[in-house]
């Protein structure tokens, strides 16, 4: 079954490609011999620096797509993707996301493998206030790439919170995955699960802090091998949504597992054909 990509992410993908083109053009115009540019907000964020280590990242190739303005900081659509140059036997193995002005800056860490096929992920994040969002990509061979985008968050009175029912944790796992794959052709896979993603910073109506309760880990296994994995933090919006790519080589079983910080988990299985 071919599922149409949500229009929002199509637009995001077009923006991504335009952004890549613009970035490439900008760099060529600048006449830089090497793509390395050290300066950026990632230097000022300790959490980001610890991922970078001593390396100065390249700013060419990694693109972060976010709206310029969002009226609802609780759920901001984000797409991060790499379309730059890598050695033939190299691949992006890790992407980290940070929100510089959130109470806790780590948003998520994604682990990719050759079974991912394409280094592009979409999700929805919580942004506390206007700020820079940083993405850092690490390749299998240790190359590092970084980029940042500023998002203005306005609190629109029109979007006052419902204050209604919190979703049942780990309920209703949903996966949209093509039933068959062509080898060498990565396809988008969408996943969703209900979960309050309670930050541990919120007070209930009695003034008591509602304890932290989040989905911490999401794993995709193809015939037993991990193909894609996500470490999630409290800046991922409630009911985590993840769109990523898979490029299976052989037919078999895909198992999707969500684990939250109480140790509870939910799974979803799908049969896939490849070839």
């Amino acid at each position: 079954m071919h599922v149409a990509r949500p229009a929002h992410y199509d637009a995001a993908r077009r923006r991504l490609l335009r952004g890549i083109a613009a970035a490439v053009a900008a760099i060529s115009l600048a006449g830089l011999a090497t793509p390395a540019l050290a300066e950026g907000p990632w230097q000022r964020l300790e959490a980001a620096r610890s991922v970078l280590g001593d390396t100065e990242p390249s700013t060419q190739g990694l693109v972060l797509d976010l709206p310029h303005v969002s009226e609802d900081g609780a759920s901001v659509a984000l797409t991060v993707g790499f379309d730059g140059e890598l050695a033939d036997d190299d691949h992006i193995s890790r992407i980290d996301l940070f929100a510089t002005a959130n109470p806790s800056p780590e948003i998520a860490t994604f682990h990719l493998t050759p079974l991912s096929g394409k280094a592009e992920i979409s999700t929805r994040v919580r942004l506390n206030e206007t700020q820079q969002v940083i993405a850092i990509a690490t390749s299998h061979q240790g190359e590092r790439f970084a980029t940042a985008r500023e998002v203005r968050i306005t609190v629109s009175g029109c979007l006052m919170r419902n204050g209604g029912d919190q979703p049942e944790p780990l309920s209703n796992p949903r996966v949209s995955i093509p039933s068959s794959f062509t080898p060498g052709q990565p396809e988008a896979v969408r996943t969703l699960i209900n979960h309050p993603m309670e930050t541990g910073l919120r007070e209930d109506t009695n003034g008591e802090i509602v304890p932290r309760h989040i989905v911490e880990r999401f794993t995709v296994r193809l015939n037993g091998s991990t193909a894609f994995e996500a470490e999630l933090h409290q800046s991922i919006s409630a009911s985590p949504y993840l769109l990523f790519y898979l490029s299976p080589e052989e037919e078999g079983e895909a198992v999707f597992e969500w684990q939250d910080d109480t140790g509870a988990s939910a799974t979803h299985e799908a049969s896939i054909k490849a070839g």
Binding site: H8, S75, R161, N162, G164, A238
Partner: peptide, 9 residues
């Protein structure tokens, strides 16, 4: 396509 809307409550 949203989880919240204007004057939802």
């Amino acid at each position: 396509a949203k989880d919240n809307f204007s004057k939802q409550g």
